[in-house]
Design a binder for these strands. Structure first.
Lengths: 324, 324
DNA sequence: CTAGGTGCAAATAATTTGCAGAGGC
DNA sequence: GCCTCTGCAAATTATTTGCACCTAG
């Protein structure tokens, strides 16, 4: 089920001996889902071995935190809880005050804002905590939702793919629209080609999405884990339609270059921020594909410029301006 | 300095007697800035009266929380701290791990995202905590920044005014630009009038801003307290320039109506969310002014329609569409 | 007079620590 | 044999409570 456990035997923070007890505690901890308090863990351990003392559990938990196996979280209950730390390191929590369960989510949007706030105060962030307290759907309605927790890795991959697909789709639509508007035949051809490529790439992403869904039939109905608007918005707003009409092939290529460059940078930037996981992989692969496409366009552009000289360069299509 | 203290004598949660001790503790608490731990408060109290017991301080703190004078906050130190609760109720914290001071900020942007996340899970939010841990500027650079903390009320007012000004400015610019583009003389006149009114309103806001600055000379250099992008962006994106050229007076009025309506709703919505304060006042007054202006425009529009019948109504200017 | 408020000391609750013995390398 | 881990019990820390006493209304 779980992708890869860290190799426990290798983890020895500031030295540490292999010991039956410690290994036992770590194993019980890793077998659990969710956020355990020290006491929960003691109870679980006691279930299979009476002779382990509370102090040892506390000491082992501390060791796990140092080793990077566990993370200590404070839900304001007056005691700490511990979560597996191979999960996303910068996730946030929804905490139900009724059933005291907690749900994790990722929000690059919130992260971004947090960074802005910190920057405005020249504050160096080492960790940020976002906790939303309230009542969960189940506790409010009484119904039991099928969606168990955990399995965030697949969820993350699913959401990463959804974002990639949304981006690609908006790209495809943009180029298609551009192709319709553009009067210049060569310009139109460029947009048509671009639209076609986006469509193709979109197809591949969707296929991958379906493959992912097959791994877990309930995957699609699970709540969103990664909240991230940035991606699908704005990357393809480039050039009001008014400008499109008179666009020639060179200018069309330049527009394509800007869009692909934006997309590449965006996915690279955010992909790099995530922890190793399939989702991160998807972001980085997507960034790579955009990069490849971008390089291709750049080569085409250069070839075109070489062939034509500077004669037909439009006023609004300088290679670097507003590339962001 | 501080605007208005709550009338302590009136505050009696679930009944409660006036008592010298309690009043004394409350007064000492209210005299302090920042976030006190129970122990800090005990020390302060002991400074002026040896005979007050720790238990009483704890009991009084609990009473203050119930009475709404204080708010209990958890900075993950293993004990609680208490802050005055006449401050903004939904503020967040930057917490320096070195000097263990904390700085407050407001972010409607983050609040908005938090609400979205909760909505996606059908989670009913009762409280949300955002804490950014790290190192503050002073601790990192060694320099002492003049900006003491506290005084959030003035800061909030300052930031509210800045946002109002930014909005008004973007409105003025938008109408000025529109006036330049519009070919129809009557349409142009409408935009010119709008631009003029915005300019005037802008002037009044700026004057008020300067008045505010006079109340505290260091006010302008203090770090941002309210983070809120929403306002200045998007409200005036209405109608690509392309469309402006052919706009007549009726259509121009309609564009103005949409912009003012957007602005009014926006400031009303967010203004209502804040706690009583000068800043809230500014938001609501601004919303009101926009409303008045809006009503005026609507009346003008109706009069125009009456005079002209439906003959000249343009295709893109239906009164309600996209009013958001 | 009586419901609260107050002080003191004891109780909790989560977590840490000192120390002596056990166990891995 | 040394160094670390472990168990147990005692210590610590923040906070709460029981109870007898005191005080305002």
């Amino acid at each position: 089920m779980l992708t890869t456990f860290p190799d426990i035997s290798r983890l020895k923070p500031a030295g540490g001996k292999r010991s039956g007890k410690r290994e036992q505690i770590v194993n019980v901890f890793l077998r659990q889902e969710g956020h355990l308090s020290a006491d929960d863990l003691v109870d679980l351990i006691r279930g299979e071995d009476q002779r382990i003392s509370r102090a040892t559990v506390y000491r082992t938990l501390q060791w796990m935190v140092d080793a990077g196996i566990a993370r200590k979280v404070d839900f304001g209950e007056g005691r700490f809880r511990f979560e597996h730390s191979y999960r996303q390191p910068r996730h946030f929590h929804l905490i139900c005050k009724t059933c005291s369960r907690s749900f994790e989510f990722l929000s690059s949007d919130i992260e971004g804002l947090v960074e802005e706030v910190a920057a405005a105060r020249s504050f160096t962030v080492s960790q940020s905590v976002v906790q939303i307290y309230g009542t969960c759907d189940e506790c409010r309605t009484g119904r039991t939702t099928s969606s168990q927790d955990g399995q965030t890795d697949l969820l993350f991959a699913r959401d990463a793919l959804r974002i990639a697909i949304a981006t690609e789709r908006s790209g495809a639509e943009f180029y298609t629209r551009a192709a319709k508007i553009t009067r210049d035949a060569r310009g139109r051809k460029v947009f048509q080609d671009l639209a076609h490529e986006e469509q193709e790439h979109l197809g591949r992403l969707e296929e991958r999405y379906h493959e992912l869904l097959e791994r877990d039939p309930k995957l699609e109905s699970r709540p969103t884990f990664l909240f991230f608007k940035g991606a699908a918005h704005g990357l393809f707003a480039e050039g009001a339609e008014r400008l499109m009409k008179g666009v020639n092939d060179q200018q069309a290529l330049m527009i394509g270059i800007r869009c692909e460059r934006g997309s590449h940078r965006f996915f690279k930037k955010y992909g790099e921020r995530f922890e190793d996981s399939e989702g991160k992989q998807i972001f980085l692969e997507f960034a790579d594909e955009e990069r490849t496409h971008l390089d291709l366009l750049v080569r085409e552009y250069r070839a075109l410029v070489k062939r034509q000289g500077r004669t037909r360069r439009g006023p609004s299509a300088s290679p670097r301006a507003g590339a962001r």
